[in-house]
Computed example of a mutant assay.
Amino acid sequence: MDTLPAPFSAPEGKRIGEIWFEPPKQLPQLLVKYIFASEKLSIQVHPSDTQTEARGLGKQGKEECWLVIDAEEDATLGIGFDHQLSADDLRAASEDGSIEEMMVWHKVKPGDFFYIPANTVHAIGGGVSIIEIQQNSDITYRLFDYGRPRELHLDDGVAVSQAGVHDPANRRHVPASGDVALVDGPHFRLDRVDGEPDAATRARYSGPLLVIPREGAAEVEGDTVEPGGCALAPSIEAIRFAANGSCLITQPLES
């Protein structure tokens, strides 16, 4: 995008599509991204751990979640369908482009949150900025790409898709304040915390985790982490949270 939400800025005349943080060796299972979409991104799907293992890919699958941090008036995210599609119907819709109209497109605003299980057909619309926390996997099967000259993966994508309705339990609007448990498995946990985490939140975290300041800086073993950054902390006790700040904290779960 040309104009990015604070605290980011794009150099004059250049667009930035995403910023991602190299997973630390202590937590290789998780990847944190900021995604800034000025136009619709491809309609795609990711396999599960079980499917990647069965296919001999030697990699974990990919489940992810999105927190909307900025959105234009008509910005949307596409997730699933309003009814179950057969494999043949999904392939045909991908080939002729009607998949775009068949998907459910959610009009979004800052604070909207979506969990995207593996096998869910999904797409990011234009004019939206999100934080994405995901299993660290680069296995993506594109089903439709709006005529762009990139490879599609119809055989693999159709094979792993559960082309049905996205569970309403996997989407919500995050309140403006308060500690909120956003994800608690199966592959990672994610919390939004205001100031110092409450006792219940602290009790869920043991060992290394990632901290992503949203408002106000955090300190990790004396190092300052500003909004827009992401840092590894050896434990939740090693983080000093800003009294009037807000952070995301996340860590992988044992499989």
Rank of each mutant, 00 (worst) to 15 (best):
D179M: 14
V160N: 01
S177Q: 15
I249E: 01
V121F: 04
V108R: 09
E254I: 07
L67K: 05
P28V: 15
I133S: 01
W105K: 12
D155C: 01
A71V: 07
P11M: 04
E196K: 11
H187V: 14
Q251S: 11
N244E: 15
W20E: 01
A203V: 11
R214D: 03
Q162L: 06
H122P: 00
E12R: 10
P24C: 11
I69L: 01
P175N: 08
K62W: 08
A87C: 02
A203Y: 09
V158N: 03
R202A: 13
F144C: 02
A93C: 07
V225H: 10
G58I: 14
E151T: 14
L182K: 09
T140R: 06
G164P: 00
L4P: 00
S206G: 09
G111T: 13
P24F: 10
D194H: 15
E254N: 04
V45M: 02
D198E: 11
D88H: 10
D145P: 00
E72V: 01
K14M: 08
S177K: 15
G229D: 13
L85P: 00
L209I: 14
E63W: 05
L4W: 12
Q134Y: 12
P252R: 13
G78L: 01
V32Q: 03
C65I: 05
S94Y: 02
T3Y: 03
E226W: 12
H187A: 11
F8I: 05
S9I: 04
L248E: 05
A10R: 03
R55S: 07
G245R: 10
R192P: 00
H153L: 10
S235E: 09
F8R: 06
